[in-house]
Design a binder for these strands. Sequence first.
RNA 1: GCGCCCGUAGCUCAACUGGAUAGAGCGUCUGACUACGGAUCAGAAGGUUGAGGGUUCGACUCCUUCCGGGCGUGCCA
Length: 546
Amino acid sequence: MYIKEHILSSLRDVLTGLGIDSPDIEILRPRDPSHGDLSTNVAMVYSKKLGRKPHDFANELIRKMEVNEDYISAVKTAGSGFINFFISDDYYRDSIEKIDRNFGRLEINSGKRANVEWVSANPTGPLHTGHGRQIALGKAIANLLEWTGYEVTREYYYNDAGRQMERLAESVYARYRQIIEPDYKFPEDAYHGDYVKEIALEIFNEYDDRLIDSDNEIFRKKAEDWCFRSIRNTLDRMGVIHNVFFNESSLYSSGKIEQVLESFAEKNLSYEKDGAIWLKTSVLLGNKKDAQDKVIVKSTGEPTYRLPDMAYHVDKIKRGYDLIIDIFGSDHGDTYKEVLAGVKGLGYDVSNIRVIIHQMVTFVSNGQPVKMSKRSDNVYYLDDLLDDVGEDVAQFFFVMRSPNTHLEFDISLAKEQSEKNPVFYLQYAHARICGILRNAENTLGDFLKAEADTSRLNNAEEIQLMKTLAYFPEIVESSYTTLEPHRIITYLNEVAENFHRFYHNHRVLDPDDKELSQARLKLCKATKIVLANGFEIIGIRAPERM
RNA sequence: GCGCCCGUAGCUCAACUGGAUAGAGCGUCUGACUACGGAUCAGAAGGUUGAGGGUUCGACUCCUUCCGGGCGUGCCA
């Protein structure tokens, strides 16, 4: 039984007894410990409607409430009308007994299916640092959904047709040609990245000059393969594994694009002008000021990206997910609204689609902006960043902040293998516990197997740590409802801080008091599990040694 | 011009989505083990939450007007 549920239902009983139908009750955690462990403002919310003074009403509620006195040691009212609940230490002692590998896993979404689509870079080059935040964020969010019970499909949407890929093929061909004829002119609008030369060289090594008169097709295919290998390799390093790669071109071959187009025409939501087909986005978006219609088929006959995007979302909706998540950078901030409005216009329910827009990242080192690593092509590739700071640090830094604020990624701090680096503070707490566990057998011997007596955990640091551990599931839940995994990090920081303080003040392994040692070991193990579970969600390793 | 996001300590950011005295890390200053890993711990200084107005028991949070920054803005994705 979670104590919060207990208080909630008890309050609900009293309020409905007073004639308030399905009362909206909020229970929160006061930051000032003198206000108790949990607190509610219901008296303030409802006293006005009932014409009562908040404080008097609060007192009445307390008198009528039935609470479990084993777990709730006191209920008090504050002058302003808050009701504060003081939870007994025994509740927390019992709760750490229940901490196992699955602690924090929720069942609120059991049996439901979610689809998370992210990264979705077209295969025109290696991933660069601009992709990093999205990769890390999507990874953490997908994990988070799984922790709430969802069965998650991780999806990657890409387009390997179209003009971009042609340009890439031409670029590779030009570099290939330059190997044979150094004076061959490289097109202005081509891809200038060094990787284009690498691809060309690989082709040259395989075919020598035999492809000099070939069409672009073989270059396009080779380039695509190379780029996807590169992308998947980088994703693999980041610990990201997509289980669906959705090719945009399948939307054409299956006729889904055509269907969407016809449907818009039937519903009178599109029209022709200047040889192009326009979607009435101004209407779909509610005729807001300056709203404008958008082209969905260019005068050349090619669709713009919006059209396949809409067909793609229709496809996802039809696949029957309970939750669909799209993750985009802020540079796509406007277009998703048009896409969703279009899908809605087609008559589909878009209410279970949630779009996460994350802001851009700037990389700084020693206070100076960083644009590139050591490359000649002026691009900071993600692989280089991972080489520079490591996978865990990169993952952590990208997820550390709320998605809708601009992120400053401090490379010099990230590189630092010291106490300044916030990742190590957390991982060190875990490694430290592992160190204690390694020593435990020596100190405790057979005593290790004995049942721990948690009533020996009495001092302030132990109790504070137990309290913090106990509300991990609530943090998972609030992270989930806001889809903000950085909340997990904020919480883990508190866990680590409480643990380090406890460790510093009390010796865990004491040969002269094996019972106490055993109890403290129990607390250490619980802490280790919570840290490891939190790390798993945000996507970093739980090191045994550092 | 318009749309979205942001503005909180010297710097980078939190703040349980409207709660009580706005909190961390870095930086600065001062301290702590002959002990399980000092990548640790204790303390100090640092704030008119960009500015004004409004909503209410209560505002960093909601509304409004400004100021400042990022991203986007009718046939690139």
